[in-house]
Structures are given as structure tokens and as C-alpha cells.
Design a protein around this nucleic acid. Structure first.
Lengths: 227, 227
DNA sequence: CAGTATCCGATGCGATACTG
DNA sequence: CAGTATCGCATCGGATACTG
């Protein structure tokens, strides 16, 4: 039923790749996720049952390998050589989405998802030498996404940690932002100047931390794709 | 239900592209099909209902445009600029399939499908100056695919026509072939010498027509992708 | 030729509960 | 933490018949 009955190379590739959720699972692995729960964090709306099924299918197709980590005992997923060669396809899909779609609407605004991705896009080399605690407060969340709206980022070179609970220590930089505007900034659709000027985003803290912010926050992988 | 609830560019692109049959419909249009029945010939296993639905969805997403032909009155589908930019993604999928899968098995051996694609891959410039009638006879068809097994290709520069009924005139070249072996040759998995040597394929006709055959038959679009 | 309307059945998928 | 087993339903998609 999931087959196409054609020997065309596009058809056989689609039988592996073009299943529901599969391209996004690969996106997560390309982005650096290795463990089941890590992959699941990037795909909160997939059921664990279906995620397990898809990972098994990818394993059977020779796209990922599952097993104990090379160093250390935990179970992990790795890409095979064949899986690695899906990267240009996923990149191509992302580039297309960046160029041709309106990406932020009220159906997909999710602060937790944004922060999970953001935490993976920190330029560690650009961070200040000392420990930094950044608090993110989001306003304007749609009712349907009843997730958290306050997050803390603990930046301690070279470590980055995302917290959902107040770490308790002093906040060095507060990012107080309208969620939609911040997502548009994240995706490259609006500049930081723009969203700060119209007061959608407030950066509160010592001047040097405010100035450093756009240096270490890399934004979305696709933010540089031209429209 | 078909959405992913994420503003990630990969996710929004997948909502358009990664539906069942959609990449193959785009492949057909990229390959040159313009009319509904033409697209359907390249996808014999999709129902007309579903093909119409998918084309409508692609139209709504701004990927194809439907309307009367620019020159002439018939209805036709054309790619928009956005649709054209899916081409590298489809190419990438085809290249992956060519490199990493076994493509010919008994579940997808379909002589009619092969001939429909073959007829689009003729190097018209390489054809002999005069009219040529080529007959293809396939052996070893799996029982489940009860399609035709004899086809005629009418080559009359610059026109190429595929016939399912005997045109009646004299055959200049007979291609008598095991279907599986010929499909493997078509896909670039085996050379013509190889399949002729082991008698899977017989070319019968005047020497000059036999020698010209591999010049004007271009094989699959992906046949040159390295394994 | 180029589709649409309607019906119905298979299966994809989520929810819940459970295990090593 | 990293999944699996089971159940039930929603929806996706095929078959058939019909239209401009």
C-alpha cells in the first residue's frame, strides 16, 4: 500500500523518504539528535509509537543504524552513508519552504519548539567568556498551544543548556518578546532592528550583553536563504 | 491531519511535497507531461480521483497552474516558478534511489510503464534520416502485471510515437528482450553488451539499425548517476 | 478528453497502558 | 530512559458511475 509499483528511482526513493514524518525525523538527526527522546523533543506532535515505527523502517531501509553508542553505553541512532545522502534533499525542501511559503501562522506557533531549535543554534565561539543566564519571556501565545512561555538559557562556554524551570541565579539578559515576531526574526523574515524598533522584542540587560546577543544567536539554519 | 504544526521550513515544504504520489506527479510534469491523461499514463496505479485531488492541492499551493494552453485551446498544467524549484528535490530523490536501492523486482516490472518512459527518452538528433519502425517484444513478465508485452515505436524525425497495436508496415528493428534485463539496461545497471551477450536481449535487423540503436535510445534520466 | 460525486473498506495513526 | 502491545476510529483512497 505504501509502494508505488514502479522501478523509477524517484518512486523507490519516495517509498523510503516520503512517508509522513520521515523527512522531519531525518531533519532532527541531521540537526544533531541521536537519542529517541531527543528526536521526539524536536517532533512533539508525533506519537512515540509512530516515531518508533518510522525509525525501524529507516533502519530496515539502511538509512539509520541503531545500537549502543560508539563511546559510552547508551543506545543511539546514527546515519548510514545512504542516510547522509538524504541531507541535500532535506536541505532542498527547507530552502523551498523558506522561499515559497508563509511559515508562521497561529497553527504552528510553539514557543517550546522554537527554544529547542534555538538552543542548538548558538555560536559557542561568540559567547562572552563568563557564564551568562538569559531569560526568554514570550507574549502573544495562541490559546491552542498551551505550552510554557518562560525559558532560561544557561550559557557557560562551551556548554549550552535549556531550562524550563527558573535556575534561581541572577538573569544577565532578558529577552521579552512577542512570540510571532520573535519567530519571524528567528526565521530571517524580520531583522532584529525591526522587531526591537516596533517594540515586539525587548532586550533588557547590560549594554554589552545586549550588543553581543545577535552575535551568538545564529537563528534558523535556513534564515539566510533568499526569498 | 496532514499538517505538522511546525513553522520549520522543512515542515511546511513537506506539507506540500511529501504527500502520497505528489513527488511522482511532479516528476511526470518535469519529464514533460502537460495534460491530465498524459500525467496519468506515467502513473497508472493512481486513481483518477486522487490524481485530480493532488493536482488541485498543488494548484492551491502555487506549485502548478491549470488553465487553457498558451497556444491552442486545450487545458493543460504548467509549473509555476515555485514548482520549478522543486526540480532539484525530485532530482535528489532520484539520484538517491539510483545509488542506494535495488530498483527492479517482480512487484514493479511493468512493460507499459517502461515503454512510456522510453518513448520520452529518444535522441531525435541521433535518429537515422529515414522513417524507422521498431518492435519491442518482452518476455518474462510477472503474472501480476498482465499488461501488453508487444509495442511499436514509430520513429520519423522529429516525431516519436508509441503504438500498442501493430502499425502493419514492415518492422526495421526487432528488440526481443527479457523484461527484467531490459529494465536493468534502461536504468543503467547493466550495459547493452552485457544483456546481449547473455542472450537476454536480441536485436534483430539490418546491421546499421542495430548499431544505431544505443545512440538514439537515451535510457533513464538517472542512468548515469554513479552507484 | 477531463474530470466529479458518492460510497465504502482498508489502514494509518493516536491514546492508553505496559515492559526491560 | 527507550521503547512495545493493544484497541478503536478517523480519514485516505479505490471503485464505480456519472457530467460538461
Amino acid at each position: 500500500m505504501s509502494g508505488y509499483g514502479q522501478f523509477c528511482p524517484v518512486a523507490v526513493a519516495c517509498e523510503v523518504f516520503a512517508q509522513r514524518w520521515t523527512p522531519l525525523i531525518l531533519r532532527e538527526i541531521f540537526a544533531g539528535s541521536r537519542h529517541f527522546n531527543e528526536i521526539h523533543r524536536g517532533l512533539p506532535q508525533i506519537s512515540r509509537t509512530l516515531l518508533a515505527t518510522r525509525l525501524r523502517q529507516l533502519e530496515d531501509a539502511g538509512v539509520v543504524m541503531a545500537g549502543p553508542a560508539v563511546s559510552g553505553g547508551t543506545h543511539e541512532y546514527r546515519l548510514t552513508e545512504a542516510g547522509e545522502e538524504f541531507r541535500p534533499v532535506v536541505e532542498g525542501l527547507g530552502a523551498w519552504g523558506q522561499r515559497w511559503t508563509v511559515r508562521v501562522d497561529t497553527n504552528n506557533l510553539d514557543a517550546g519548539f522554537l527554544m529547542w531549535n534555538l538552543q542548538r543554534r548558538i555560536a559557542v565561539d561568540e559567547l562572552p567568556a563568563q557564564h551568562l543566564l538569559v531569560e526568554f519571556r514570550f507574549r502573544g501565545l495562541p490559546e491552542r498551544h498551551r505550552g510554557a512561555h518562560i525559558f532560561w538559557l544557561v550559557l557557560s562556554r562551551p556548554d549550552v543548556e535549556l531550562c524550563l524551570k527558573d535556575p534561581g541565579t541572577d538573569v544577565d539578559l532578558l529577552v521579552d518578546a512577542d512570540l510571532r515576531a520573535f519567530a519571524q526574526f528567528w526565521l530571517g523574515d524580520r531583522s532584529l532592528n525591526e522587531v526591537v524598533s516596533d517594540k515586539s522584542v525587548h532586550l533588557v540587560g547590560r549594554g554589552e550583553w545586549v550588543r553581543a546577543f545577535p552575535s551568538w544567536l545564529l537563528r534558523s539554519h535556513f534564515s539566510a536563504v533568499p526569498r
